[in-house]
């Protein structure tokens, strides 16, 4: 469908690939993805911080009403994840939905986010999965 332009994918690659969040020098709070101003206090005095790759699942939904292009991994689990200094919404993978529990430890994994049709770009980014190793 040609919805992922080269420029758009390229612009966001660093924070998509490496969980780089924005951090406000004024109020100290972090937010992901990095914005132009702090969503909490509005300050534009920001720097960047790499988020921890392990966190906890606050809540989740098992989504059956997915677009056709995601049918190969439906149902898709969407989780609200607490990484300590910031929270984010992300897909939770590598789990049978029935085995998932609120409070589970989850870890970041690098995955395909979208594949643009048959000839377009492959968009990569971070998803999460329950920690079972170590």
């Amino acid at each position: 469908m040609g919805e992922w332009s080269s420029a758009r994918v390229w612009r966001s690659r660093v924070y998509r690939y490496r969980l780089i969040a924005g951090r406000c020098r004024s109020c100290g709070r972090a937010h992901y993805p990095p914005a132009n101003a702090c969503p909490y206090c509005g300050s534009r005095d920001l720097d960047e911080v790499e988020l921890p790759r392990v966190g906890r699942l606050i809540s989740y939904s098992v989504v059956y009403a997915t677009p056709f292009e995601d049918r190969d991994r439906s149902p898709v689990v969407i989780g609200l994840i607490d990484l300590g200094i910031a929270r984010l919404v992300a897909e939770v993978v590598d789990v049978k939905p029935g085995d998932l529990r609120v409070g589970d430890r989850v870890e970041a994994v690098f995955r395909r986010i979208a594949v643009d049709g048959n000839t377009g770009l492959i968009v990569y980014g971070i998803k999460f999965r329950p920690v079972r190793v170590g």
Partner: peptide, 13 residues
């Protein structure tokens, strides 16, 4: 490999 994995994603991990 899962449906959202490929040699690049595994290689990065």
């Amino acid at each position: 490999a899962g449906p959202d994995e490929d040699s690049t994603t595994m290689g990065l991990e």
